[in-house]
């Protein structure tokens, strides 16, 4: 099985999740994880616990990219258009991006999506993706 494209961003359990941190003092979430400081200007907390983020969210917006992104995006011989979504997580009150998978071409703002871990576009590594909830 391929390894995650980047360490410490998500789990690869059967029910995968994004890995962030939560400030023990004020409760602010951070993704990617902050481990030395809390970004809330009213908080000087330095204790940040690792947490898994909600694996379901709603679409804030999305796009289908019809041209290949330049490196370091993995370059493949046969380019396939790919979707990217901005997803709102209710509990964390934040937006997290992710590539899209499944039947997403009719997605609307507010539609529900769930987290999956799948091979990246070149199949060499694993990456998190958002998939419409049927």
């Amino acid at each position: 099985m391929p390894a995650p494209a980047v360490e410490g961003f998500f789990t690869t359990d059967p029910e995968p999740a994004l890995l962030g941190t939560r400030c023990s003092d004020c409760g602010t979430y951070h993704f990617p994880a902050e481990t030395f400081f809390c970004r809330n200007p009213a908080c000087s907390g330095t204790t940040l616990e690792q947490v898994t983020l909600s694996s379901r969210g709603t679409v804030w917006s999305w796009t289908m990219n019809r041209y290949a992104a330049p490196p370091p995006f993995p370059q493949t011989e046969a380019f396939e258009p790919y979707g990217v979504a901005a997803v709102e997580l209710a509990e964390e009150r934040m937006i997290v991006l992710g590539m899209l998978t499944g039947d997403f071409e009719t997605l609307k703002i507010g539609d529900e999506v769930e987290l999956l871990v799948e091979p990246h576009v070149d199949g060499e590594t694993l990456i998190w993706k958002w998939k419409p909830v049927a």
Partner: peptide, 12 residues
């Protein structure tokens, strides 16, 4: 990271 992980170009 945004390019590597997501192919999130500016037009994205």
């Amino acid at each position: 990271l945004r390019f590597f992980l997501l192919g999130a170009t500016n037009p994205t």
